[in-house]
Design a protein around this nucleic acid. Structure first.
Lengths: 196, 196
DNA sequence: CCAAGGATAGAACGATCGTTCGAGTTCGCG
DNA sequence: CGCGAACTCGAACGATCGTTCTATCCTTGG
């Protein structure tokens, strides 16, 4: 179904794989060139340097995440429904672009200031979407904490952590896993019932 | 308060810093040697190779985590109290050994099979502690899910994710942050109240 | 059919990597 | 004091790193 890409795109495609597997410092230009069966200089024909390739990946796939999340919210009104849809869209995007998502949340201190900034910008954007939704829930009286940002971090922790353990090939059906995660989050955001 | 360590210990101490900041592939033996103001060969006097140094760090600090968690559980009976104590101990240990904890959950595929195994073993041990507690809660009728492992992953996600954003120097008091996180988790593990 | 420019390759650069070696220095203990 | 062990160092090895250069090939428009 995926038509095999050529030229520049094929490089990005393969680089995503290797960066996700070995990190930025752990992946050499030669690794990437060898994986596409082309020469080292060919990589430099398309990208100014190693970091430009990293940024191209961010451009290519990861930056689409905030848009997907916004799209999932577009037609929902009820705050609880909105958060559910947000988390579900986030989980689906993470599984669909598993390798890219892993890159997105790698903490690469070896990037240039520009590379770091690009990474942080995407992360911050996603965080703000979650904070916005939690504040909606608070306005609706469902969430009671004053620390909406901490709660957003906690939700993001659950969502992102599943990149570390979830494998689509496992015996559990994806849908069931998603429902467990969503249920966990939706219980957590509500204030504890008074009678307990 | 920390007496400055000598010889081998000083190397471990500094290596923890650099590995946590730059990852395994991103930290060179020369970096470490320079940071302690000694020679490269001196590092090799104490450690067979780079990975032995990594394993020494695991030995030195991270492997103590499961013991700390067990200790926090030792004198508690009530399942809810137990999970609260477990999470709190985990958070405290993570903050206290912030750099080591970051290393612990770095996904370093560049390690040898032996190094990977050591990392995974610690992670698995911690996971099993959480699964055990969640199954206690299930036996007590508080948790209702059948997927106790998924729930354990979710809890670990929240706990570990705070390494990514929490800074002890922030304006929020550590105690307050901990309480927010613990509250989040304790709400999430209970089944939703029937009337909602 | 030929010129131009994109695509590709191979060789080489200086830097840095993990690691080894041999030789000094210091230290503890008889 | 003497001697072996522990410690420390600088130099060097081969491998690999990111990057550059030059030269071909292939395609394509006039």
């Amino acid at each position: 179904m995926v038509e095999s890409p050529k030229g520049r795109d094929e490089l990005v495609e393969v680089a995503v794989d290797l960066f996700a597997k070995n990190g930025f410092a752990g992946t050499s230009i030669r690794d990437i060139a060898a994986a596409v069966g082309r020469s080292v200089s060919n990589v430099y024909h398309y990208f100014e340097n190693k970091e430009a390739l990293w940024l191209a990946i961010l451009e290519y796939s990861v930056k689409a995440l905030p848009e997907k999340l916004h799209a999932a919210l577009a037609d929902k009104q009820d705050p609880l429904e909105r958060l559910t849809a947000l988390v579900r869209a986030h989980l689906e995007a993470s599984v669909q672009h598993h390798r890219e998502s892993k890159i997105f949340f790698i903490d690469e201190e070896r990037l240039s200031p520009m590379g770091k900034r690009a990474n942080r910008r995407v992360q911050k954007e996603v965080l703000e979407i979650y904070v916005g939704e939690i504040e909606r829930l608070k306005a609706a009286g469902i969430v009671r904490t004053d620390e909406t940002k901490i709660m957003a971090f906690n939700v993001l922790g659950v969502v992102n952590w599943h990149l570390r353990w979830f494998r689509p090939v496992g015996k559990l059906k994806e849908e069931q896993v998603f429902n467990e995660i969503i249920g966990f989050i939706m219980r957590a955001v509500r204030e504890a019932p008074p009678g307990s």
